[in-house]
């Protein structure tokens, strides 16, 4: 879910850039030198996971997983996502440099939001954890799509229908992200539960 170069207006780009810088600064404060390598490798793992194509109906979609990133990394997800977006722009040409700020806000804002909304549920046991994980995955994509739509409509009113189309097209992805996030969390809870408390250990 990237927006390309040359679409958004200057105020939107500047606003996104400012929020992204503030978020990245807060996020970097939450990573100490002892955990920077762990954060980096989790961030490369998410980068790889976001390239995986999952079959859905007649085609396939690729995952975003910003909900999962948010649950695991908390505020550190802002610099991690900004880094991943910068690398994607350089390596594949997804997104771009001037829209880096907006894209970071669109993806990392919801990640931090679900960390606060569903983080407590995920640290509980059993069914509550599963529901929390599903909601985290789904709500993160929902919020991201809304932010993206907002950025488009804020630039030009003619984007209203494009934004509506985008929102409708993302509904299957929201459900899929919810289901996948739920399975990843249930797996981590059984195999390596300490990863689910990663962010609270980094900045207690």
């Amino acid at each position: 879910m990237h927006i390309s170069e040359g679409i958004l207006s200057l105020p939107i780009l500047a606003g996104g850039g400012a929020f992204a810088i503030i978020g990245t600064a807060i996020g970097l404060k939450h990573i100490d030198t002892d955990h920077i390598i762990e954060t980096s490798l989790l961030s490369s793992a998410f980068f790889v996971a976001s390239l995986v194509h999952i079959p859905l109906g007649p085609g396939s979609v690729h995952l975003v997983l910003n909900g999962l990133v948010g649950i695991l990394l908390g505020w550190a997800s802002v610099p991690a996502i900004a880094t991943a977006l910068f690398l994607q722009a350089l390596l594949f040409g997804f997104g771009g440099l001037t829209v880096l700020g907006v894209n970071t806000v669109v993806m990392a804002g919801p990640a931090v939001a679900v960390y606060y909304l569903f983080g407590p549920m995920i640290r509980k046991e059993g069914r509550t954890r599963m529901i929390g994980a599903f909601c985290a995955g789904m709500v993160a994509i929902l919020l991201s799509t809304c932010l993206l739509a907002l950025a488009l409509v804020g630039t030009d009113r003619s984007f209203l229908d494009t934004a509506r189309l985008l929102l409708a097209a993302q509904i299957p992805l929201m459900l899929l992200e919810g289901v996948i996030t739920m399975f990843v969390v249930s797996f981590l809870a059984r195999v390596q539960p300490e990863l689910l408390n990663f962010s609270s250990r980094v900045h207690p």
């Binding site: 002892d34 390598i37 762990e38 980096s40 490798l41 989790l42 490369s44 793992a45 790889v48 996971a49 995986v52 999952i54 079959p55 859905l56 109906g57 995952l63 997983l65 695991l72 899929l176 289901v179 996948i180 996030t181 739920m182 399975f183 990843v184 249930s186 797996f187 981590l188 195999v191 390596q192 990863l195 990663f198």
Partner: peptide, 28 residues
């Protein structure tokens, strides 16, 4: 398109995360 596929992908991604985490500790 079924739950078994999504469970398998979920576990694959989970395992990738665990492996990267383990690796990061050794690197550190």
């Amino acid at each position: 398109t079924n739950l078994h596929t999504y469970r398998t992908y979920g576990y694959l991604i989970g395992m990738t995360l665990i492996r990267s985490y383990e690796r990061s500790r050794r690197i550190h």
